[in-house]
Design a protein around this nucleic acid. Structure first.
Lengths: 338, 338
DNA sequence: TTGTACGCGTTATCAA
DNA sequence: TTGATAACGCGTACAA
């Protein structure tokens, strides 16, 4: 097996008879004689010269890589967002180191540390731990950090999130407009940003429409499939069961559907159901499931562009909060209450 | 906003009164006096010293990053694998730069180039283009490449794949054992490795059990939702329709289920159905869907460990092919043919 | 055991 | 416009 060498500026200099400095200038778009430009270009192609990002980084103190830290790579919500982010950053020459912390707050810290050690130029992350300390120290070091999906209170940091409050507000509003009076909601854990917001939306829309709230109809689950399953069963077993239920994340929606199947509940006659997040899923269950869709594309684009702005040292609007609108798709799983 | 400096070995040297070389030795596990070890450790903690991977890479010619190139980040099959890979490599100090080429063969090349420019130490990739040239040049440069999911003919390269042939063999075998004689299969595009293998399995099991093959029952779709949808409708509209159908990837399975819903086909009474890949999906459709599960965890582990082996310059078994076993989960969507 | 000194490939300064 | 040269932070002979 033949082993080829990787060529450097030095090699290009030798090939062309010019100095290293001139080659560097050419590469970085400086003034070089046209005839020299030509021969340098030729040399670069012949020698297959590739700039050594490490050496460059050593000088410029930039790695041209952005760290992305996610709770899970097996969650389509996050991977869709990261796919968008990666595409935009890559166009600008940035690589993305993607880590997941497997929804483990300890690991979140470890991986953040890992990214810092890699000297990434910026970090886009979803934090579960909500720890301010490390993130603040990054901001202090002028390393841009953009938070996704979850707010951290008391931290001045750029953030891009979905409008969680109005997401549940609008979903429940659709139900209220269809004459539902007893509407169940399966929420995430208390003191979790997204869950708290979605709970608030539920409460606010009830107030705005003057519909009484039965606290029993608000189930605090924990964003897992199993918890969604048991929560729906609990709601169904109430003396005065709800006529409609909103499930507020993807995993719990799966669980809720499984419960509906096991209990042989007829949707939407016996129960109207609205799920969360995964449009594709909505298409295969029967009847088609109504869904609250989060604007993953916009979240990704906004985060990536904001990162690029910070990287170009534009902090004019720091810290920014982008709260992007969700969309409710009402399908046959929702009926008008009689 | 206070801006902190990042400290270097030099700073540690100053703090301790020792030389840079000694500090470096300590960091890399050389012989240092116990009392010096102590003070160096103290300095490292106080100054929050982090090794500069760029400077290190410049010397060692290693970036400690592995490139992962995937067709799509929105495909749970790939992201599950990459999640495993990332976890294992990260434990060994390697970062992973993850790129997706959005199932576009042009982009595949661009992104591969991008990773090479980043001087990654190795590349794990799923190739759609099947282009040998670039991959071969990497291997020639002693940059380890591990192929996932799809074989490239005529290329000596490490590869980790699922046993696609026996995946469909076993799924169809389950159907044959349940007395099905007319079994439809919805395949991926011709000249695509995974699709060709799955088609072969279908044919071989028919031969082994002496069941005649009706070529009309073999539908070549293109791995998309829509193609799965129309393929199932085509099968259903045949004069002699099949009593069972195997769908050979996730997207087409979604499409097939949508078609089943639209056509009001009763599963499994009117048609037995086996899908592919996504276990979670199988749990929410009714009746529960039988599924061929690919060993994503094993694929990821195998690929990551093989990469680590190559990185440690162990080429003893090069090139290796790992063909990992799939598993068929038979659920209520399959009945015995009468 | 510790320190001196050089080089890795690049960028940037300044003089020619 | 070009070139010589000094950094950047680290690893490593080789010398002490």
């Amino acid at each position: 097996m033949e082993v080829y060498n990787i060529s450097t500026i030095k090699d290009v200099a030798k090939y062309t008879g010019l100095s290293i400095a001139t080659i560097s200038k050419y590469i970085n778009g400086g003034n070089v004689l046209d005839e020299n430009k030509k021969i340098i270009q030729e040399a670069i192609e012949v020698l297959d010269y590739k700039r050594n990002e490490m050496a460059r980084g050593l000088k410029t103190n930039k790695t041209m890589t952005i760290g992305v830290l996610l709770p899970s790579l097996e969650n389509i919500f996050f991977t869709s967002i990261v796919s968008i982010i990666e595409g935009i950053l890559q166009e600008k020459g940035y690589g993305t180191i993607i880590c997941d912390f497997k929804e483990d707050k300890e690991l979140e810290h470890t991986k953040l540390e890992f990214l810092i050690n890699k000297h990434v130029d910026g970090i886009i992350m979803v934090s579960y731990s909500g720890e301010k300390k490390h993130i603040q120290s990054l901001i202090d070091k002028k390393i841009p950090v953009i938070l996704l999906d979850r707010m951290i209170k008391g931290l001045d940091c750029d953030i891009v999130i979905a409008d969680n409050l109005n997401a549940s507000y609008q979903a429940v509003e659709e139900l209220i407009m269809r004459k539902h009076k007893r509407i169940g909601i399966i929420c995430g854990p208390e003191n979790t940003y997204t869950a708290d917001e979605r709970r608030k939306g539920y409460i606010r829309v009830h107030e705005d429409y003057n519909v009484d709230i039965d606290e029993e109809l608000i189930k605090n689950a924990d964003y897992t499939v199993v918890s969604g399953y048991t929560a729906l069963i609990d709601l169904w077993n109430m003396d005065k069961r709800p006529s409609a239920v909103l499930v507020t994340n993807y995993e719990m929606t799966i669980g809720a559907i499984m419960a509906v199947n096991d209990l042989n509940i007829t949707i939407p006659n016996q129960l109207s159901l609205i799920g969360f997040d995964n449009i594709q899923m909505a298409r295969i269950v029967r009847p088609p499931l109504s869904i609250v869709e989060q604007p993953m594309k916009e979240i990704g684009e906004t985060a990536a562009n904001l990162m690029l702005k910070r990287l170009s040292d534009d902090y004019s609007d720091f810290p920014s909060t982008y709260r992007l609108k969700t969309k409710v798709h009402i399908k046959e799983s929702v009926s008008t209450n009689i």
